[in-house]
Design a protein around this nucleic acid. Structure first.
Lengths: 210, 210
DNA sequence: AATTTTCTTAACCAATTGGTAAGTCGATAC
DNA sequence: GTATCGACTTACCAATTGGTTAAGAAAATT
């Protein structure tokens, strides 16, 4: 009998350290950009010596890849699939809800993602070309059926998806600007609900669903 | 009489070179980030030797400041002030129109701006705190009056402004993603008009104005 | 207790990069 | 003709940074 008292001790330090590094790296990459974030700065933020970082990750690019993967997993989970049987109103509501909550809960993930796209999506082009394109087409088709059925107004489904993406992500990516303009130090609990209510109202009405 | 034949020869080269550098620098900063863009890469893109760059601009940060200023000027011009007397419908239409056209015509300006905000707006906090905050408050007040007058639906004016900003800028900042998903190499003439029509329709309806 | 594996660290290096010093060159002014 | 000034260039350096090596400390396994 091995590993009885302390369950899975091996790899425990490893997993812990890797997570610490990944978290620190995400923040550094957002704040300083890929080139601006140094291995040393990541190490400092993680509270580990620099050589230790390069013990767990082969090199800097490797860290960045790991951060991106982590981000994409979140995108995948948080996006909440649309259930066709629910009808357009519930579908859009659920979609907005999920995206807004993700923006408020994981702003750094959204920021990393946004910076990648802005800079030309060198590391994400494949993801967009395969996965996202497919996702958008499926969902657009669904919306189109609802439109053809007279269940919602005739709006361009693809642009509708872009609208939901942009308006929801904005609260993560432009956090700094929004807080400064509203003269606030940070978001509060209520803000999430308020944004969800506002965007749902606007977009549903825009789709002739309210 | 000096400078008769050739009008203002001195400073002509200067202005031309500076513009070339600024344009090249904007692209480099967008593509590589502040730290990632090297003076050499800016020089290469501008078609000038590196030392020449540092002859016209004291240092790298100086170039970046110049780029940001140039961007803010555009923001200022392109935003197109809202005329209270026109009523909410025309005002919102005009606002969306101006912002979308700016996104399609100067995507790099939008991108530089977006990256600054995402990374914490180190160089733009003052601008947001003074100028933008004031602008948003004025406009929000205007919308509120229209709402109180029953001229438009009761939607949160500040969030409405954020919605217009985010949905219009999206086409510049996320250009790469949008084109990839739509399986297109670049935007076409029609796209601008289509986006303007879509967003106007959606947002006006959301405001109970269509 | 011995041994093997994992983890941690200091010291170091090669390459890149921002920036400078010191000048050349050509045109205009005097 | 020569002094001046803006435009441009070469050669160089100090500092930073990504990454390696090699060796020791700690843990886990036997």
């Amino acid at each position: 009998m091995t590993n009885n008292n302390k369950v899975k001790k091996t790899g425990n330090i490893r997993a812990k350290s890797q997570l610490k590094i990944l978290t620190a790296a995400t923040t550094e990459f957002v704040l300083q950009g890929y080139k601006g974030a140094t291995v040393q700065s990541i190490a400092d933020r993680a509270g580990l010596p620099k050589a230790n970082i390069l013990y767990y990750f082969k090199n800097k690019e490797n860290i960045y890849h790991a951060v991106l993967e982590h981000t994409l997993e979140m995108w995948d989970e948080g996006i909440g699939d649309i259930d066709p049987s629910e009808g357009p109103k519930a579908a859009i509501e659920k979609f907005i809800d999920a995206k807004v909550r993700m923006s408020f809960n994981h702003p750094e993930a959204s920021k990393i993602y946004a910076m990648e796209i802005i800079q030309g999506a060198q590391h994400l082009k494949e993801f967009a070309r395969t996965y996202q394109r497919q996702w958008v087409r499926e969902k657009a088709k669904l919306f189109q059926q609802w439109i053809d059925n007279g269940e919602m107004a005739a709006v361009d489904p693809v642009h509708l998806i872009f609208l939901i993406w942009s308006s929801t992500q904005h609260y993560a990516d432009f956090e700094t600007q929004i807080l400064t303009i509203m003269n606030r130090a940070e978001y509060e609990q209520d803000d999430v609900e308020q944004v969800i209510a506002f965007l749902s109202q606007m977009i549903l009405r825009g789709c002739g669903l309210a």
